[in-house]
Each structure stands twice: as structure tokens, then as C-alpha cells.
Simulated scan of single mutants.
Amino acid sequence: MFTKFKKIELLILVLVVVLIFISEYYYVVLNNPERALFIGLWPPTIIGLLIYFNLKLKK
């Protein structure tokens, strides 16, 4: 299943999951919604950049 992914792509996906958990930690445990929101906005941005660069490389 994961053989189609490059190692760097898997690393980026793991980073995205870690960032989501960090954001949840700031929101739930530390009760800091502003920082949680700031960190929570990075995963979609990183995934969007990953998609953009993959599409750019295919052309």
C-alpha cells in the first residue's frame, strides 16, 4: 500500500499527523485555542504544497 509513496512523502504525512496531535494537545490540555488554531492551520497547507509539487513534477 505504501510502496507508491516516496520516503519524503511518508515523512511529511507523519509530520502532518504529529502537528494535528500537537494542535489538539494545545487546545484540550493547555487550553490555548489561539496557538492550537495557528498550529492546526499548518497541516492543510503542508498537504496542499505536497499535492502542488507532485502535480508540478508530473508535467
Rank of each mutant, 00 (worst) to 15 (best):
Y26I: 00
L55T: 07
L19C: 07
I20P: 01
N54S: 15
L19Y: 08
L30D: 05
F5D: 04
N54L: 15
P43T: 08
K58A: 14
F38A: 13
N32E: 13
V14E: 02
S23N: 02
I8L: 09
I47K: 03
F53Q: 15
V18T: 09
Y25W: 11
V14N: 02
G48V: 06
P44S: 05
L37W: 04
P44C: 04
K4Y: 09
L11G: 06
N32L: 11
L11D: 04
P43K: 01
T3G: 07
L49S: 13
N54K: 15
L11E: 06
V18K: 01
N31H: 09
I12K: 02
I47R: 03
L55H: 11
L49Y: 13
I8K: 10
G40Y: 03
Y52V: 12
K6F: 03
P44K: 05
L50G: 10
Y25T: 05
A36F: 03
T45A: 13
I20Y: 06
T45E: 05
L30E: 13
P33T: 08
P33C: 07
I51L: 15
K59N: 15
V28K: 11
L49H: 03
W42N: 08
N54M: 13
L50P: 10
S23D: 04
I51Y: 14
V18W: 05
Y26D: 03
L30W: 02
G48A: 14
M1Y: 10
N54I: 12
L11Q: 08
I22T: 10
V17Y: 02
F21N: 08
P44V: 06
K7R: 13
L13K: 10
Y52K: 13
K59G: 12
E24T: 03
V18D: 07
I20N: 06
L41F: 09
Y26F: 15
F5P: 02
L15D: 02
L41P: 00
L13T: 01
N32V: 07
K56Q: 15
Y52A: 15
V14W: 01
I8A: 07
G40I: 01
N31G: 00
V17C: 05
K4H: 10
F53K: 14
I20D: 03
L19F: 12
V28R: 12
F2N: 10
F53T: 14
P44R: 03
I51S: 09
N32A: 14
Y26N: 09
L50C: 09
K7V: 12
I51K: 11
N31D: 11
V28M: 06
L37S: 09
I22P: 00
K6Y: 07
M1K: 09
N54E: 15
L13Q: 08
K58Y: 09
E9H: 03
V29S: 08
V18N: 02
M1L: 11
T3S: 14
K58D: 11
K7P: 04
L15V: 01
G40N: 08
